[in-house]
């Protein structure tokens, strides 16, 4: 079962790729369809921490790889979130809890990379203008919205995959 996280990653990757394609459509408006935060919620509920952590790190690194985000910012944020979630599994015990978790973790992760990028690039381009702040806010709001909208389909796929590879169901499922 040690490789469960890798299989989960492969099962999640189509979603990440799909998000990239959606970003492509939104590119003119300057928005990124960000789902990395949502992707880690369902696995965190069922995987052991030792499995959930590398999974979260990989999801983060995948998003960062092609973007000028300071190395590791998103990955470590996701890892931190996944540690928290695996330690507090009761929080994810029912549907509202899961949805809340998805929204919060997606928003947090999005805020983390956006803020880190803004700070890293501020030496040349001061993030002074109001429009940058507005955009920042809109991007985060979009992330929250996507978290809410995409959690269920993503978790369906992920749960199916976990069922297939024999990950035990969450202990406290009502």
């Amino acid at each position: 079962m040690g490789w469960a996280w890798l299989i989960m990653l492969l099962a999640t990757y189509p979603w990440l790729l799909g998000a990239d394609l959606a970003s492509d459509v939104l590119a003119r408006g300057g928005f990124v369809v960000f789902i990395s935060g949502v992707c880690i919620v369902a696995p965190c509920r069922r995987l052991r921490p030792i499995q959930a952590i590398p999974f979260a790190a990989c999801v983060g690194f995948l998003f960062e790889a092609r973007r000028p985000i300071p190395d590791g910012v998103l990955a470590f944020t996701l890892v931190a979130i996944s540690i928290f979630l695996t330690a507090n599994k009761p929080l994810l015990r029912n549907a509202p809890g899961l949805l809340r978790g998805a929204i919060i973790s997606n928003t947090l992760a999005c805020t983390a990379w956006a803020a880190a990028t803004a700070l890293a690039l501020s030496t040349t381009e001061a993030p002074s203008s109001n429009s940058t702040l507005t955009h920042f806010a809109l991007q985060v709001a979009l992330a929250a919205l996507i978290g809410a909208a995409l959690y269920i389909p993503i978790s369906l796929v992920q749960n199916y995959a976990m069922d297939r590879i024999g990950v035990p169901p969450a202990a406290d499922t009502p």
Binding site: D20, D24, G30, F31, V32, R67, P68, T117, T132, Q139
Partner: peptide, 13 residues
């Protein structure tokens, strides 16, 4: 392959 843009980058792959 894809386009990707935000406040901080405007990229294509």
């Amino acid at each position: 392959a894809t386009r990707d843009s935000s406040s901080w980058w405007n990229r294509i792959v």
